[in-house]
Design a protein around this nucleic acid. Sequence first.
DNA 1: GTGTCATGCGTAT
DNA 2: TACGCCTGACACG
Length: 266
Amino acid sequence: MPEGHTIHRAARLHKQRFGDRRIKAWSPQGRFDDGAARIDGAELVDVRAAGKHLFYEFEPLETLHVHLGLFGKFRVFGGVGPPPTDGTRLAWSDGESTLYLAGATIVELIDRDDEVRIRRRLGPDPLARQSDDLERIVSALQRRNIPIGAALLDQKVVAGIGNVYRAELLFLAGIDPRRPSNELVPADGALLWEETVRQLRLGQRAGRIITVDPKDVGAKSRKSLDRGERLYTYQRDGEPCRRCETLIVSTEMGGRSIWWCPSCQQ
DNA sequence: GTGTCATGCGTAT
DNA sequence: TACGCCTGACACG
């Protein structure tokens, strides 16, 4: 379930679990035999996340670039773990834990210049804050003559937002996704960025996207929320808004569906 | 078993 | 705007 929160969480967990460890690597599926052979026996020295991209640095120097795409998934087990599924492109083990990676769009070894190039294509990452982020976001949004809902999926604007967060963040900021990006006023930009940072941090910590304030559904805590009450608008077409009961609507935007509350989001 | 869908994105038309 | 590509879970017959 890969938006930026998943990626940063993986970076942290994988570094904790496998950092400074020598790994044995292989490709159960066989489609990454050569790459796995190059990192087999190497030591994982760093794991970096940027937006939805992951960079694993090994010693002797190799950099593994992973992008999960829509379906990609890591599985980590203590010990040997169950047999890998047929689609497992990369597996590694340090003797104490085993990692499987399946379904990713990108699994490749790259060099330093490639990483720099990939990072240059990305806008500010809410989970790796810089002091000028707000200004960069607002000016990037104001330069685009497209609906703000479409602009938020552009990784050059904000790195790490996907289809769930774009809908949820616009709800939390009270912004109609159809509003032209270049008409965003700075106050709304600031609110949107504040929610973005807050929500991705919460998502990273929880390991899942939960945007709903428990009070809005009469629950005691975020943890006690049922699966069906964690989001305000995503895939809730025709259901009542959790705050005002107005029915949630949806449309296609940027090639994907988006949902919003016509009353809370103006 | 088959069909459908999904939190992504690059390329072609 | 459409399509291809990466997989797995689930609904259905």
